[in-house]
C-alpha cells in the first residue's frame, strides 16, 4: 500500500491527482464555476484540478510554507493560516463549497473548524481516514501497535493527526453540532478502486469516508 502514498507527479498537470478517490469525488460534486475554499490545501493538486476541470474560482488555506510555494508555482491563490484560529478573514457564506480534505484529524478544534466552514460556505465537504476500518483494527489487534499504512501514514510520535475518528464518530459528531450530512461516499483505498455511496457496514469496511455537510435547516 505504501507505494501509493507518493502522488504521481508525471503526466499532464491537469490529470495529476486524478487517481485519488477523494479528489475525483470532489470533482464530481462541485458544479462548474463554483467558488471553492480548500482548507489544508497542501500542494494545491485538488485546487488545480477544480480550476482546470470545473472552472472553479478557488482559494486555499495552508499552514506549511513549502506547500504554499508549490501552490504559488501552480498559479493558485493561497493564504497562509492556521485553521484552528478560524477563518476570521473570510466573510459569511462567501463560498459555495468549503473543503476539508484529509485534514480534520489534524485540527485542534474540530467543532470550531466545522462551524467556521459552514459559516463561510454554503456546503462543506469533509473527508478523512476511517480509524475503524478493519485493516486498522486488525493491525491493532494482531500487533498491538499503532498502524502505519496508507490510511495512517505516520508514526504515532510524528503525526499531524491528533484526532483519529471513525465514520460512526463523525455521524454522531454532526448530530451533536447541528450539522446535516447531505451525502456520503466511501472508498476502501485512496488511489485504488472507486468511491461508492452505499456500502455494507462502512464503519468496518471503508478506508476513507467523504461527507457533504450543511447547516441543519
Amino acid at each position: 500500500m505504501n507505494e501509493e502514498q507518493a502522488p504521481a507527479r508525471a503526466g499532464s498537470e491537469n490529470n495529476e491527482g486524478l487517481q485519488r478517490n477523494d479528489f475525483r469525488t470532489v470533482l464530481d460534486l462541485v458544479e462548474p464555476g463554483s467558488r471553492v475554499l480548500d482548507l489544508g490545501c497542501g500542494d494545491g493538486t485538488l485546487l488545480q484540478l477544480l480550476r482546470a476541470r470545473k472552472q472553479a474560482s478557488g482559494y486555499g488555506v495552508e499552514m506549511d510554507q513549502r506547500l504554499i510555494m508549490e501552490c504559488i508555482a501552480r498559479g493558485l491563490s493561497v493564504f497562509q493560516g492556521n485553521l484552528d484560529e478560524g477563518l476570521r478573514d473570510f466573510e459569511d457564506q462567501s463560498f459555495d463549497y468549503v473543503i476539508l480534505n484529509q485534514t480534520l484529524p489534524a485540527v485542534h478544534r474540530p467543532a470550531y473548524v466545522l462551524d467556521e466552514m459552514l459559516r463561510v460556505g454554503k456546503m462543506g465537504i469533509v473527508s478523512f481516514p476511517n480509524f475503524a476500518c478493519w485493516r486498522v483494527r486488525w493491525h491493532l489487534l494482531t500487533r498491538g501497535r499503532m498502524p502505519v499504512d496508507e490510511i495512517i501514514p505516520y508514526e504515532w510520535y510524528d503525526t499531524p493527526n491528533i484526532h483519529h475518528l471513525t465514520v460512526v464518530d463523525f455521524e454522531e459528531f454532526c448530530r451533536k453540532q447541528g450539522v446535516a450530512i447531505r451525502r456520503a461516499f466511501y472508498f476502501r483505498q485512496l488511489s485504488r478502486g472507486h468511491a461508492v455511496t452505499r456500502m455494507l457496514r462502512p464503519n468496518l469496511r471503508a478506508g476513507y469516508a467523504l461527507f457533504v455537510i450543511a447547516r441543519e435547516p
Partner: peptide, 21 residues
Amino acid sequence: MRDIAGALRANGADVTYLEIK
C-alpha cells in the same frame, strides 16, 4: 498584510498571502 489579503480576497482578487517564519 493579512488585512490587505483578506480585503483583496473579499473583492474576489487573485491573492496569495505568505507569512515567512
